[in-house]
Design a protein around this nucleic acid. Structure first.
Lengths: 338, 338
DNA sequence: CTGTTAGCGCATTCAG
DNA sequence: CTGAATGCGCTAACAG
């Protein structure tokens, strides 16, 4: 029940070997003979020694830990990104601590603060929807270590953002609908405070223009990410008469919209083509044949973590690249629609 | 770009006040005058002081951090439990670090080890499917701190488990089907190495017996938790002719089973009643009318965290209760089936 | 290859 | 109420 308290000194005394040698042995320093190393490891095991990382980290001023701030782990996209982050961090010998901002700037700030005071080596963050000022980030950058943004880019000096080419993905999705013959396409859009949704909207509009189609404000539905937001959209969209296509750039709201429609027994007519952003198993269930824009989620985690670790290890601490842009894949399935 | 390095000594020098007083002031010790406290806090802000938690934790041998080991954060049930854990931890002033075992004993062991060496104050864990030996847990318990199990109980001396009364929940679900007039009920079951699935099966069988119905092995499908497992079940279940009810105790596999059936255009006949364990939005989408057994997920997180924190703070470190059992709610909706 | 010495940043005795 | 002294456990010079 008592705390362990077996320290390197205990095993130092037991063996009549200096504690510094013990430390070296336990860290596999080449500067200790194989024989004494073995003796030491043996004794350590015997005494149930457990390294105190706090002390070690304090001394070396490194923690081999990276902090991850994520809006919400329950969103499938983020859960998968985190899986990707963990994979590469684990391989590189880094621990990962995950913090959920729940889209709150207050929580985000608090977490950055405790990450800083816990001396994590760097931070991966997808900023919250409320985040418009960046002091907490700058503070970490200045006193802490590198920051890499993922999914939601943020333009801070010497920080790189890993994100998806949302403009292009949106453009392609819209183009696909147009090529299917759609002329009146409704658009599910997300909160325009988030750059990514802005870019998706631009891609949509540009594709229309490039194909000489009119963009109509009335066909564009901006909403938040909650399920209620989706339901509101659903109510509006069923009233539109002329549409022959739907392009959803707001996966979360779209899902609850479809959920709502389904619960009311309303089906999207077969002659309406639908393309949706999608990394969620739910939409695959609702419409197995749906054409989707698949985001490189796991890969994004890998890449963001790799970049951060590179910056941690290059003492320069200056990011070479301002941003890394990934592209999404448009997956055309045997749609149950057109 | 340089590390911060503002320490209590820096502000001590700047103010000509001893560092011990600075430390006290920053920790809101009552033993320092309001006046000097203010001066110190002011200076701290001015110099951009950031407490070094590593040093502080090393000194006090407490980290105010609890480790959470979870099989997989992307499973909705666990994501919600974690949300519950975070809520109460946050309120009690504890940080949370989340580790995914991915159902691997090796990973679980490694995480317990780093949690131990990072001196977290306690651990909340849902053991992996592979976990049959408990040395890594006992080691933490002995040298580290209290452990509380959630969802997947584990009987280790002086550890409490927070879990759901799966037997009763299963019993009620089955009873509900029987009361609807079902006589031939198929059963989706999970891996019997996990105690919880064993209990669910027992509940199912006992309910049948209590109502003088025969339990048939051929109607019981045990499977793992992967989506392939679900698909295998789906293939088998469509071949059964006589069934008039389905009770699914394995939500994950059941979801992919339904997904698979749906993609093949196969519908579960309307005269078959279905009850499923459910904390997943997907099943709500597939069958909005489904009668479900709803597990107290968020609440479980609250309760487990509360219990752990209590044990951390009671130096006794002996758990009073061996287990805390929560009950699930059977939610009967206007089923599209019976 | 090993020992000596010193100190990371902080909190806590114990004196005043 | 404040200051002086000590050490948490470990690592990193620097000598030998």
């Amino acid at each position: 029940m008592k705390s362990n308290k077996t320290t390197i000194h205990d095993i130092s005394k037991a063996l009549n070997i200096d504690s510094s040698t013990v430390s070296r042995a336990l860290n596999n320093s080449p500067r200790v003979s194989e024989k004494t190393r073995k003796k030491i490891r043996q004794k350590a095991l015997e005494l149930g020694y457990q390294r105190n990382s706090l002390a070690s980290n304090l001394r070396t001023n490194k923690t081999h830990t990276i902090g991850v701030i994520v809006p919400r782990i329950s969103r499938n996209f983020f859960a998968t990104v985190i899986a990707g982050i963990e994979e590469t961090a684990y391989e590189a010998g880094y621990n990962v601590v995950i913090c959920q901002s729940l889209e709150s700037l207050e929580r985000e700030t608090k977490f950055m603060d405790t990450l800083l005071s816990n001396r994590v080596d760097g931070v991966l963050i997808s900023i919250s929807m409320e985040t418009t000022s960046y002091e907490h980030l700058l503070a970490f950058k200045q006193h802490g270590g590198p920051i890499v943004f993922y999914d939601r880019p943020c333009h801070i000096e010497n920080c790189t953002s890993v994100s998806i080419d949302d403009f292009q993905a949106s453009y392609n999705a819209t183009k696909h609908l147009i090529e299917q013959g759609c002329k009146h396409i409704a658009h599910f859009s997300g909160p325009q405070e988030i750059e990514l949704y802005k870019n998706r909207k631009k891609g949509f509009i540009t594709a229309l223009e490039d194909h000489n189609l009119l963009y109509k404000e009335a066909y564009c539905f901006e909403s938040g990410l909650s399920s209620n937001d989706g339901i509101e959209i659903a109510k509006k969209i069923v009233k539109l008469k002329q549409i022959d296509g739907i392009y959803s750039a707001n996966d979360t709201a779209a899902i609850s919209a479809m959920q709502y429609l389904k619960s009311k027994g309303i089906q999207i007519p077969n002659d309406i083509a639908v393309v949706g952003f999608n990394n969620d198993p739910i939409s695959a269930v609702i419409e197995p044949g749906l054409t989707t824009v698949n985001q490189p989620d796991f890969e994004m985690g890998n890449i963001a973590a790799t970049e951060l670790i590179k910056q941690i290890q290059n003492k320069t601490a200056n990011s070479e690249k301002d941003s890394i842009i990934l592209s999404s894949e448009l997956i055309v399935r045997n749609s149950s629609n057109k």
